[in-house]
């Protein structure tokens, strides 16, 4: 579930186009490196509760940033739970109840699984270039890598986060860190990418830590197990019928 969120949050960045020459160039390179038309990933999400650590495995199919389908593999409790996102609609299927529940309207603003992410967070399907103005703020060294710091400010009104800061590896064209800010400038969430490896000729982060900075705890880890770039995904995957299969 959470990996779904992270993918949803990151995907728009990877298809990013900005007006400012520098930022635009940088993000185009990032896109080229990381974004594929379709993707099938197998991943693990590590949720560190106050009392225990839970690892949830899932397999996701995505096509662009409009369609995604996730199936949970383990632990037993979560197995068979599926989630389908088509545009701005979201369905969740649970095998134990054999029910498909659509989340809509005010429901999308509710927190997902007690986390501080709302369903809406993962529903953003507009390209970042459509809703943000970007510019290169500067350069620095992060985790021993030289990075550009990009600042994105919302150019339309109805966005969840007014400002984003993204740190991009100058050599590998991959984001290493992202911070999301409130209108007031207050930092709300931080995403850190690490264990960068080359997969099928692309540099790719195998571990992403997602943290709501207002809450206690160490955040949630998202660990990539397997990824396929540009596989053929049959259309039926992205239908409600596939939820019940």
């Amino acid at each position: 579930m959470k990996n779904q969120l992270i993918i949803a949050c990151l995907l728009p960045i990877w298809t990013f186009q900005v007006k400012a020459q520098d930022a635009k160039t940088i993000l185009e390179r990032v896109d080229k490196n990381m974004v594929s038309k379709t993707e099938i990933t197998e991943s693990e999400m590590v949720i560190r509760g106050k009392r225990n650590v839970q690892t949830i495995g899932s397999k996701s199919y995505t096509e662009g940033n409009q369609k995604s389908f996730t199936e949970y593999l383990y632990p037993e409790r979560e197995r068979g739970t599926k989630m389908l996102k088509l545009g701005d609609r979201l369905w969740i299927y649970s095998p134990s109840t054999d029910r498909t529940i659509q989340l809509s309207g005010h429901m999308l603003r509710q927190s997902v699984m007690g986390s501080d992410l709302s369903y809406e967070d993962m529903m953003e399907d507009r390209k970042l270039s459509e809703i943000y103005e970007g510019k290169v703020q500067g350069e620095e060294t992060l985790s021993g890598r030289k990075v550009w710091i990009l600042e994105l400010i919302a150019s339309v009104e109805d966005v969840s986060y007014y400002k984003r800061m993204i740190w991009i590896d100058q050599e590998r064209y991959i984001p290493l860190q992202e911070e999301l800010f409130a209108k007031s400038g207050q930092l709300l969430k931080r995403t850190v990418m690490s264990e960068i490896e080359q997969i099928e000729g692309r540099w790719y982060p195998k571990k992403i830590n997602f943290k709501d900075v207002l809450k206690g705890g160490e955040g949630t880890d998202f660990i990539l197990k397997k990824v396929q770039f540009n596989p053929t995904i049959p259309d039926y995957i992205f239908t409600k019928a596939s939820l019940k299969k």
Partner: peptide, 12 residues
């Protein structure tokens, strides 16, 4: 932390 009329997060 709250959301403004457009749903944009804000915090202070």
């Amino acid at each position: 932390r709250w959301r403004d009329k457009n749903g944009t997060f804000d915090a202070t």
